[in-house]
Amino acid sequence: MPRVLVLVAQRIALGCLLLLTISILIFAGTEILPGDVAEAILGRTATPENLENLRRELGLNEPTYVRYFQWLCGMFQGDLGSALSSGADISEAVGYRLKNTLFLAAFASVLSIPLAILLGLIAVRYKNRFFDKLISALTLAAISLPEFFIGYVLILLFGVQLAWLPTVSIVGEDMSIGQRLTVTILPGVTLSLVVLAHMMRMTRAAILNVIEAAYIETAELKGLGKFSVIYKHALPNALSPIVNVVTLNMAYLIVGVVVVEVVFVYPGMGQYFVDHVAKRDVPVVQACGLIFAAIYILLNLVADIISILSNPRLAHPK
């Protein structure tokens, strides 16, 4: 079998193993918290008898490993159980929320990734000149400001003063794609500003790393313009570190956007997750934890595979 396939298969197998390990950690973590679900449900009304009854009803008296496998099997079948606090089906709630989160993340990615790479290329083209310093300063300022601050400034500007866009971003199932996009603009732009600097700076650094190579000189001596040298000859050889940072930021967009969701009242996974942590709703926390882990691992897997495929020595063996 070609070496590249072996490497990719290895990465996928490792990803699965990692996911399994994390599922154990999540389950064990919620298990060692003081008190159990029955106590949480009954709260002050708990007496030894009805605690015992509820535990039997919920199957909490089974050994830990049995409950782990039941939970894991449920997860794989798409049955995430039901929330303790409301009794609602978790799969249904998560389905709706995850879709919103992915939509927002996709919006922000489409906006920020090409922009970050383009700005990185421009920064290299005008290295140490005015443009480079301006881009660096602006993106650094954007990453240094807290996201809620950027969010509120945007709301103030475009939502209140100019009144171009809605100030809250509640999305419903019955919205058209156009309506959805309109309400997503402000949170999407906020998130883009947050992730832009990291990706742009990595693009700049990775390209500067290969720009000293002899083949860049070869390209320049063919009479190619400065920008096409960077774009055609430097970028393809600097892809691997850039892709890694890009996917890391995409993972952040999916997993870590609680603050922005709260600011814009956007019904995404982050808010849902935090709400249920506060309610000590263990099944929801477990389900969300596993979904976040899976997304993180999947994106990093994609980054690894792209790195492997972008290495000509691996992709085109002798």
Binding site: Y215, E217, S310, R313
Partner: peptide
């Protein structure tokens, strides 16, 4: 160039 191995873009 002196070193063709370094003078060619490895990914083209």
């Amino acid at each position: 160039a002196q070193s063709a191995a370094a003078g060619f873009n490895p990914s083209k």
